[in-house]
Design a protein around this nucleic acid. Structure first.
Lengths: 232, 232
DNA sequence: CAAGTATGATAGTATTACTATTATATTTGC
DNA sequence: GCAAATATAATAGTAATACTATCATACTTG
């Protein structure tokens, strides 16, 4: 997937920024360094003032790109979901068996993230950690509804829809496709966090990715083994 | 469950407060009104200054009970998990069938919360909404590890342990008991939030609690139907 | 009734989350 | 190659937040 497409670009809803950061050097530095900083000191301690200092710019200049740090977080998480969707579309291309498609999708959504050299200004490993810690903070606020109207969570819902459509390919009578997929996405993130910080809330297995194993088993069992080619 | 036990008291780890709020009138007002306010304006907008005004006290007095609003949130969520555990113990008393015990536990953990008149200073319906929106914010910070050491999340882990023990009663070979239970607790909360604000991420059913139905099905299917008396 | 404890009143500080203004580069269009 | 537009830097300022400190008073308890 690396250098195949040199000009891939993840589209982000333009309500999240005031000025598109990919259109300038300063914008790229804002994105790159904000990822570094949020990963390092946490979203709560992160401020535009600190960021400006690191990138040798000013607070006012950063504000020309993003209204506030919350909007910047929406931008970063939207990028992440867009990136995941792009990886999903690639990963499922030419795979015709619905069970295989679903298993690949689950793996992608739950496994640990590796760096992707296609996007030099974004460190996907760090961004993944940010998504795990902070992505729920973008919608767990009193402004969800108005922000949702502006399309702030479009990338996330689009990804969920795409995977739940695969679920429906397998069992079109299944009544909970979106619940199933959003449960595994959020669940896998939580479990990775628990594994690192609150191990009593999770389980680990020797020499195996317990999280991916669990969610794969869960989905297969929940969808039923009737015409299940999943075991193969 | 109402007036059976007039002196029930939920024990909270004393690292979460500076002065136990149940020991004074001011303390009770802090707890009661902070629940009202956080539910109404959201945790981000909630400040001790605003709270003090509402309870006719001062910022400094509130600070004598809680170090900061984050600690207050830990107190509130700990109370909630303690309360859930108390309801769980009650709800499972004298039920000997493990499957019945598990089904009752899932129902309790995933269903909508009703008010409990045993605790007059706490509105459980509002507190449940706060837990749904804000409980993850207590551990999704850079201080998790040190706060965990002080026992801040003990109530939550204890509840998860108790239910995962029921899982192991049914299938002691099951490799993911904690993951399963923490997934349904966090999952059910998320899904209720999605149902209210981001409906594309969930599914709803006419005349039925889709969330409880889904998680019950999920757990039953995932644990296997071998010696399953669950359907009965 | 004295001594301790809890609360209230008031004030003050550092930091955050912005907004505004002006000057200086840099790019682009002709 | 130059004018016009645009982007950024420099600086300053404000309101709100998240506290901390001090002192007076009221209330409780031994």
């Amino acid at each position: 997937m690396k250098e195949l497409l040199s000009n891939i670009h993840i589209n982000i809803n333009d309500h999240t920024y005031l000025k598109d950061p990919v259109t300038s050097d300063l914008g790229m530095r804002i994105v790159t360094s904000s990822i570094d900083m949020i990963d390092e000191i946490g979203f709560e301690s992160f401020t535009f003032r600190k960021l400006a200092k690191v990138i040798n710019s000013t607070e006012a200049s950063v504000y020309r790109y993003f209204e506030n740090k919350h909007k910047l977080l929406i931008y970063l998480t939207s990028w992440y979901w867009g990136w995941m969707e792009y990886k999903l579309v690639f990963g499922l291309a030419n795979i015709s068996s619905p069970w295989q498609r679903l298993k690949r999708a689950i793996k992608l959504l739950t496994e640990e993230v590796m760096e992707d050299s296609s996007f030099s200004h974004i460190n996907e490993v760090k961004l993944n950690r940010i998504v795990i810690c902070d992505s729920s903070k973008v919608y767990l606020t009193k402004n969800v509804d108005s922000e949702n109207e502006t399309g702030a969570f479009y990338g996330y819902t689009k990804l969920v829809k795409r995977v739940s459509d695969v679920v429906l390919e397998i069992n079109k009578e299944f009544r909970f496709p979106n619940m199933l997929i959003s449960t595994i996405i959020e669940g896998a993130h939580h479990q990775r966090y628990f594994a690192a910080h609150l191990p009593k809330l999770t389980d680990s297995l020797e020499g195996e990715d317990a999280i991916t194993s669990f969610y794969e088993k869960m989905v297969i069992d929940t969808l039923g083994i009737k015409n299940n080619q999943a075991v193969s």
